[in-house]
C-alpha cells in the first residue's frame, strides 16, 4: 500500500491537497452555494427562509421596489444602489489616500539605513497587535465632541482667548474615511516596502549615470519597479474596505450605511437572510468585477507574491 503510494505521483498530489480541499469545500464552496440558494428564497413572517426561486431580492437591491405608492405596480427606489455606490467610492477614496500616505513612508523605510529598517517596520506593525475594534474605539475617543482633539483645540483656543465651538467630527463620512485609512495603512506599506527594498541600488546609480536627475529617476525607474507592491497593496486594501462594517458602524453612526452594514442588519436586525444573501453575492460580484479590470491592467503584483 505504502509502496504503491510512493510510486504513484498523482495520488501523492491528491493526498497533499486533500486537507486544503476539504477546508475550501466545507467552509467556502458549500456556504457560498447555500448563500446562493437562500438568496433566491423568500422571508417568512417569522424570519425563516422559504425556499423558492425568484429574483425579487436582486431586483430590490437594484431599486425595483414593490412597496409603491398607491396606484403604481412598480417604482424606482435608489436606496440600495446608493449604498452600493457609497461603498465603492469609499473603498476607492480610502485606497487612493492609503497609497498616497503609504508610498512616501515605505520609500523612506526602504532607503533608510538597513540597521534601522526593522525598527521602522516594527513601528508600522505595532498597532496590529491590538484588536481592530479597539483601535476604532480609540478613534471615537479622539473624534468625539468632548474628545481629545476638541479638548486640546479648546484648551489652545482658551490660551489665546478665542471663542471655541467644538467640531462635530464623529459620525461623519470624514470620520469613516479616517478610520478606514488608519486601519488599512499597514497593508499598503508592507508590500510597497517589499518591492522598493528589492530595487538594487545600482539601478538608481545607473539612472543617474545615464543623466536622470532624482525626480526623473523616480518616475522612470523607482515607480514602475515598485508598481507590483502598489497593486498587491491595493488588493489587500480595496477588497476588505468594500466589505467591512465595523468602522462605518462605530465612526459613522447610523448615517453612513455601507454594503457591509446592510448585510449585517439584514441578518441580525431585519432578520431577512434571503435579502442579506443576495446583498452578499452582489458585493462579491462587484468586488470581483473591479478587481478583474484592475488586475488585467496592472497584473496581480505577482513579483511580490513570489518574493
Amino acid at each position: 500500500m505504502l509502496k504503491r503510494l510512493r510510486e504513484n505521483k498523482s495520488a501523492q498530489g491528491t493526498l497533499l491537497i486533500t486537507p486544503t480541499l476539504i477546508f475550501m469545500v466545507g467552509l467556502l464552496i458549500i456556504p457560498l452555494l447555500l448563500t446562493l440558494i437562500i438568496s433566491f428564497g423568500k422571508r417568512s413572517a417569522e424570519g425563516n427562509v422559504i425556499y423558492t426561486f425568484g429574483l425579487h431580492n436582486y431586483m430590490r437591491i437594484l431599486g425595483f421596489s414593490h412597496d409603491c405608492p398607491a396606484g403604481q405596480t412598480t417604482c424606482f427606489d435608489p436606496l440600495y444602489a446608493q449604498i452600493l455606490w457609497r461603498s465603492i467610492s469609499l473603498a476607492f477614496n480610502t485606497t487612493v489616500l492609503v497609497i498616497l500616505l503609504a508610498y512616501p513612508l515605505a520609500y523612506f523605510i526602504a532607503r533608510s539605513h538597513p540597521s534601522r529598517r526593522n525598527t521602522f517596520l516594527f513601528l508600522v506593525l505595532v498597532p496590529l497587535w491590538t484588536n481592530f475594534v479597539i483601535r476604532v474605539y480609540a478613534w471615537m475617543m479622539l473624534l468625539r465632541t468632548q474628545g481629545l482633539i476638541n479638548s486640546v483645540l479648546g484648551w489652545l483656543a482658551g490660551l489665546v482667548g478665542v471663542q471655541f465651538v467644538p467640531f462635530e467630527m464623529l459620525y461623519t463620512p470624514g470620520a469613516v474615511l479616517v478610520g478606514m485609512v488608519y486601519e488599512f495603512l499597514p497593508f499598503m506599506i508592507l508590500p510597497i516596502y517589499t518591492s522598493l527594498e528589492k530595487i538594487d541600488n545600482s539601478l538608481y546609480e545607473a539612472a543617474a549615470d545615464l543623466g536622470a536627475n532624482p525626480l526623473r529617476t523616480f518616475w522612470r525607474v523607482t515607480l514602475p519597479l515598485s508598481m507590483p507592491g502598489v497593486v498587491a497593496g491595493t488588493v489587500l486594501v480595496f477588497v476588505p474596505v468594500m466589505g467591512t462594517f465595523v468602522v462605518s458602524d462605530l465612526l459613522g453612526g447610523k448615517q453612513i450605511i455601507l454594503v457591509g452594514n446592510l448585510i449585517q442588519r439584514q441578518f441580525l436586525d431585519a432578520r431577512d437572510p434571503t435579502f442579506g444573501s443576495a446583498a452578499s453575492l452582489i458585493l462579491m460580484v462587484m468586488t470581483l468585477i473591479v478587481m478583474y479590470f484592475y488586475t488585467r491592467k496592472f497584473g496581480f503584483g505577482e513579483e511580490i507574491v513570489a518574493a
Binding site: D200, A206, A208, D209, L210
Partner: peptide, 18 residues
C-alpha cells in the same frame, strides 16, 4: 552628481532596467 558628468558606467551587475 553623476548625471552632470560626461562619463558613463558599465556596472558589474549590469544594472539593467528590468
Amino acid at each position: 552628481p553623476p548625471f552632470q558628468r560626461p562619463v558613463n558606467t558599465v556596472f558589474q551587475s549590469y544594472a539593467l532596467f528590468q
